[in-house]
């Protein structure tokens, strides 16, 4: 039976179906997607780890699932995967924290 939640793990395998209702754009997206993850100046493993970190930053359960598997398949180990996540955490946390400069500026502006 289908799960009646917003996120169903089985839906990940249906990602390709998004091209059904707009084949041209769908094809262009997936061609581009495939090209992005090919071995290049960055290795396939490095790209999988970047994708894993970004998946956490955008909090996409499908992407976390997909790029955990992909990172393992490309030879990454647990330490590399967790360090990648910490990079995302540092940037997300840092992005919040750096705004505190604005808070400090404003507070100073209003204070004696």
């Amino acid at each position: 039976m289908e799960k009646s939640t917003y996120y169903n793990p089985a839906d990940l395998a249906k990602f390709g179906n998004v091209a059904d209702w707009q084949p041209e754009m769908g094809r262009k997206f997936f061609d581009y997607y495939g090209e992005v993850f090919k071995d290049g100046a960055l290795s396939e493993r490095e790209k999988a780890l970047i994708a894993l970190a970004v998946a956490h930053a955008v909090q996409c359960p499908y992407c976390i699932d997909a790029y955990t598997v992909d990172s393992l398949q490309k030879g990454a180990d647990e330490a590399q995967m967790m360090e990648a996540v910490h990079v995302a955490v540092a940037i997300k946390g840092g992005a919040a924290l750096v705004h505190s400069v604005q808070m400090m500026n404003k507070a100073k502006e209003l204070s004696m």
Binding site: D39, S43, E44, R45, V69, D70, L72, Q73, K74, G75
Partner: peptide, 15 residues
């Protein structure tokens, strides 16, 4: 674990 190997050539380089 329960996953497939990635591309042999890429893994070889990493190893």
């Amino acid at each position: 674990g329960a996953f497939l190997p990635g591309r042999q050539v890429g893994l070889e380089r990493e190893f």
